[in-house]
Amino acid sequence: DRIFMTRTEALEFLLKAHQTAVDKIGHPSHKQTPADHAAIEALDRLLLDVRARRVDQFQINASAAQIIVTD
């Protein structure tokens, strides 16, 4: 599946995904793992790359739809 978004929409989408990941590892019942921190770092890099126009398409994980940034 493909989803087309403007750059602004894609950045909002990534910010929400980032916040969800941060909230998940901050929850008291969740045991933090290196994979959790790696996922947040990957989202940080992706946010910067989309914002800087170095990336025009991405996929958060293998089961997610491919996001295509349109400007």
Rank of each mutant, 00 (worst) to 15 (best):
M5C: 02
T6L: 04
R7I: 07
R7N: 05
R7G: 02
T8S: 13
T8L: 12
E9L: 05
E9F: 03
E12F: 10
F13G: 01
L14Q: 00
L14C: 00
L15H: 11
L15C: 08
L15N: 09
L15P: 00
K16M: 11
K16W: 11
A17T: 06
H18A: 04
Q19M: 09
T20N: 13
T20I: 13
A21I: 14
A21R: 04
A21N: 04
V22L: 12
K24A: 04
K24Q: 08
I25V: 10
I25H: 06
I25T: 06
G26L: 10
H27K: 11
P28L: 05
P28G: 09
S29M: 06
H30A: 02
K31Q: 13
Q32N: 13
Q32I: 15
T33H: 04
P34S: 08
A35M: 09
D36V: 05
D36E: 07
D36T: 03
H37I: 15
A38I: 11
A39M: 15
I40K: 03
E41T: 07
E41V: 12
A42P: 01
L43N: 00
D44I: 14
D44T: 14
R45A: 09
R45V: 07
L46V: 03
L47W: 09
L47K: 02
D49M: 08
D49I: 02
R51G: 12
R51I: 14
R51S: 15
A52D: 14
A52V: 08
R53S: 14
R54D: 07
V55S: 03
V55A: 04
V55L: 05
V55Q: 06
D56A: 09
D56F: 12
F58P: 01
F58Q: 00
F58V: 01
Q59I: 10
N61I: 07
N61M: 09
A62T: 12
S63Q: 14
S63L: 13
A64Y: 10
A64R: 07
A64G: 14
Q66R: 11
I67Y: 07
I67C: 01
I68M: 08
I68L: 07
I68F: 12
V69A: 02
V69E: 02
V69P: 01
T70G: 06
D71A: 09
D71I: 14
D71C: 05
